[in-house]
């Protein structure tokens, strides 16, 4: 699926898939307030792949969470596919995530009680998909785990678990995929395989990809990079980045 679902309201500007305007996020620590993000503005276009890089504690994960509608900002607006998600209720955001968003996490976040197949089926079932089993099996075959359908996460290696997670992320045909350090828990070689898989699937599906990563080669494979430092975001000069990572 390369297009937004039919019921999404297209506007001429919907070429912009994700927009953050004047985004700020603060956490109340009782007698103190911690500012995590400050005046963030950014735009990500349809089918673009974007990396958010920065030091630990710089606010990358918070930004990812806000863009994905997992949390709402203290100030500012997040628009996803034309919908101002930062103004939606928690349940509406959940519905929106079910229909349009996929996730990949550093710690895989597979449900230990479910098999690989069931983990992939889960978002399909939540989205009332007609044949969740068949679709899930197909995706697992695509990520190379066609023979591990009945294995539980505990019986899989880290790389295999992340492949299940990738299959799950693409299961509901998302238009945006958010990835939080997808190779962070993996060794270099496995990380590279996972990166290849992720980028390939992303290309095939035409998904917009927003990824937080420390993995510089992986970041370099994205079309654009945002640097985040002390809560402020700046877009990296792509040429300079390519120079650095060459």
């Amino acid at each position: 699926m390369n297009q937004a679902s039919p019921e999404s309201q297209f506007s001429p500007q919907s070429i912009v898939m994700l927009r953050a305007s004047n985004l700020s996020h603060r956490v109340d620590l009782g007698n103190d307030t911690l500012t995590i993000l400050q005046g963030v503005n950014l735009e990500i276009k349809r089918s673009e792949s974007v990396a958010i890089v920065g030091r630990s504690g710089s606010g990358k994960t918070t930004l990812l969470g806000l863009l994905a509608g997992l949390d709402v900002p203290t100030e500012g607006v997040v628009e996803l596919d034309g919908a101002r998600i930062s103004e939606l209720s928690e349940d509406d955001r959940a519905r929106m995530r079910a229909q349009r968003v996929g996730f990949i996490f550093q710690s895989f976040q597979l449900l230990p009680a479910l098999t690989a197949l069931e983990n992939v089926m889960l978002p399909l079932e939540l989205g009332d998909h007609k044949a969740p089993g068949a679709k899930a099996r197909e995706l697992l075959e695509r990520v190379g785990l066609g023979d591990r359908l009945r294995h539980t996460p505990r019986q899989l290696s880290g790389g295999e678990q992340q492949r299940v997670a990738i299959a799950r992320a693409f299961a509901a045909d998302p238009i945006v995929l958010f990835a939080d350090e997808p190779t962070g828990n993996l060794d270099n070689q496995t990380g590279e395989t996972i990166s290849d898989l992720l980028m390939a699937l992303n290309r095939e599906q035409g998904t917009t990809l927003v990824m937080v990563t420390h993995d510089e080669p992986l970041a370099a494979r994205c079309q654009r990079q945002f640097n985040i430092d002390a809560g402020r975001v700046s877009e990296a000069d792509q040429a300079a980045v390519e120079e650095l990572t060459r």
Binding site: L70, E90, D91, A94, R95, M96, R97, A98, Q99, V101, F103, Q109, L111, L122, P123, L126, G127, A172
Partner: peptide, 11 residues
């Protein structure tokens, strides 16, 4: 948290 991320509402 995961179920919510995958789109299940709080209700």
């Amino acid at each position: 948290a995961l179920l919510k991320t995958l789109g299940l509402g709080s209700r």
